[in-house]
Design a protein around this nucleic acid. Structure first.
Lengths: 363, 363
DNA sequence: CTGAAAGCGCTAACAA
DNA sequence: TTGTTAGCGCTTTCAG
């Protein structure tokens, strides 16, 4: 028995003739114990300066890089945050993911992105992948997540953060977006230009953020003393095509507003196309306002006036919420609920109502 | 001594009152050994059907999910592919990453994305992160990667795949893009419409893919018997702003072509803006051709005629190349070099040369 | 403050 | 085929 073990050890050793430096090698070279190396690298515990320096020297000279898999296994913390989105082809997400990654890396974390592709099975698989990789938290940035999957996460005490969720899951943070502020700025901007006839192309009715945007719009209209004509609330679906369809509907009504606010930028871009197709100029004949400030909004013709959804902040808040939890203890107290404020970005798609200039000239 | 060990074991056990199912628990419940469970799950080795069924039942009932960290550590394969890009704000990348993720997941891999942000330090950190997480391969989708970092990867026998690299690193695959095909189609498209005066706004001269595009353009011009006027080769930098600047230069020359081909879509969109600013209509007064077919190209006004760079295929080819290598042995033979073909996508930004219609009417 | 050693959950020899 | 067991490379008690 003894012999066998020895033999096996030896054969392992033989394979390791390759100069793969592990923590043990570093310890040996620095003439300290592995735990001292570990402590030195973690930097949390005090280590005698002499030894620490020896360790650092060896680390630098040998090009040692710790194996995070092993670290994760031993410590129970993977240093990975998961983030669930619908998919990257939706232009809202790339910037969000980029922000999430940047902040995560800044704090020594890796990210694992899961795309649901608006598909239930995909969702379930995403969550499973996250659990299998032992993520230290997951940010859920898309709606319609299966409750059973969420339970899987909760059962394992994995910190969670949602955005704009109404159901305030216990044991989970939720980030609230203040759509009101940006939308109010938008409506006021239009009101100041002289608009009194403003339509709104909404988003999917099952999407909470879309509902909130619509509500904020209606409220802002009231605040500005503008008549809220229900026929001018056109249903949309947050896509380019949806914007075009919405405009068709509006044209069908016959009674055109002087400005159109959209629940998101893609819709606004669709509206822009439909308008130009009909020979209407933006903003001369019609003002358009978007929402989100996705990248393409900057380069449409004319560049889109829109309400910025600060995705970098969102990302940062999400990671704060995730990292703020201390190992599943004291959840209720740790819960971090931040509010993200939206703001107006004025570009070129908004102007005076049609006829206003001639009014001025005549007046 | 014996006592101590025992005590420590016991205390561990006590903590484990929590119902965390691991492979051992599954084995116990299914009345088999851990290796049988492992084998059953891996599905590679033959396992007695009776036992396998018992295992699967327990796995399903208990909701057991294997810990991939542990699996990675024990097997030496992390099942993670790294992908290095400049950053997600560059609209070329989201679709690439999405494709990469989809294909990776399909094959049981996770992806680790590293954004260089065009910054050397960032690059180095990216590579380090990949190594520390023990990736099974990395796709390098951005140029200007530090050679020393690459050496770090090569030293560890990590499969590599590059795109459009000239230096054919030994031990690494390289994916070649056939820009010629798409660009030839583009030039022919213009030639057929009647264009004989075509300008080209190039990309950064240090970018290999940009150089290849320019070369392909010049060659296509010759093939079509069109005069290659060097003044009409305008330097650009693959950005929106670059496109605007390029147009300024072209206007300064005074002698305008009837069509402009751009090294990428962002440039084309910039050109579009500059043109409209000058009161020129597209395509009535000037035809524009882009390259890449990024998402916004579909929704510009007018929608951009462009040459599609098939990013999904690129992603798939990259993963094939990475997964094709078998553990760093026989590299040279395993090297997989694929060629990705680009193709023309005709939309609305190209038309007859200005005056052509009146020629027809007069003729 | 340091070192020894017991695992983290899994895979893969190896033995049976 | 199946079971036993020694690690994978690291963290973390626990003794000193």
């Amino acid at each position: 028995m003894q012999n066998k073990i020895t033999k096996s050890r030896v054969s392992r050793k033989k394979n390791e003739v390759r100069e793969h430096v592990d923590i043990r090698a570093v310890a040996r070279l620095a003439n300290v114990s592995v735990s001292t190396v570990s402590r030195t690298l973690s930097g949390i515990v005090n280590v005698d300066l002499k030894m620490a320096n020896r360790v650092w020297k060896v680390v630098n000279d040998s090009g040692y890089m710790p194996n995070k898999q092993a670290r994760a296994l031993a410590s129970g913390r993977s240093k990975i945050f998961g983030i669930i989105i619908s998919n990257l082809n939706n232009p809202f997400f790339p910037e969000l993911i980029q922000g999430f990654e940047d902040v995560a890396v800044e704090r020594g974390y890796e990210i694992l992105v899961g795309s649901t592709h608006y598909d239930k099975d995909c969702m379930v698989q995403c969550i499973r992948r996250m659990i299998e990789r032992n993520v230290d938290g997951v940010a859920i940035m898309t709606s319609g997540i299966d409750d059973l999957s969420i339970d899987q996460l909760k059962k394992r005490d994995i910190p969670l953060v949602f955005v704009d969720t109404k159901v305030n899951h216990e044991r989970a943070s939720v980030l609230q977006c203040d759509y009101g502020h940006g939308i109010r700025q938008g409506v006021q901007h239009l009101a100041i230009l002289g608009h009194r006839n403003i339509a709104f192309v909404s988003g999917p009715s099952e999407l909470n953020s879309a509902k909130l945007r619509l509500t904020a719009f209606s409220r802002s209209l009231v605040e500005c003393g503008i008549h809220n004509k229900s026929a001018w609330i056109i249903p949309g679906n947050h896509t380019f095509e949806g914007g075009i369809v919405a405009m068709k509907r509006l044209f069908a009504i016959g009674d055109l507003p002087t400005a159109i606010m959209c629940s998101n930028d893609m819709t606004a871009i669709g509206v822009l196309h439909a308008l130009l197709q009909q020979g209407l100029r933006v903003p001369a004949d019609m003002s358009i306002l978007g929402f989100d400030d996705i990248d393409p909004a900057r380069t449409t013709i004319p560049p889109l006036t829109t309400i910025e959804m600060p995705r970098i902040e969102l990302a940062r808040a999400a990671i704060d919420a995730l990292g703020g939890h201390s190992h599943g203890i004291q959840w209720a107290k740790d819960r971090q609920n931040a509010t993200i404020r939206t703001t107006l970005v004025v570009r070129k798609s908004t102007g005076f109502p049609r006829g206003a200039m001639s009014d001025l000239l005549l007046g």
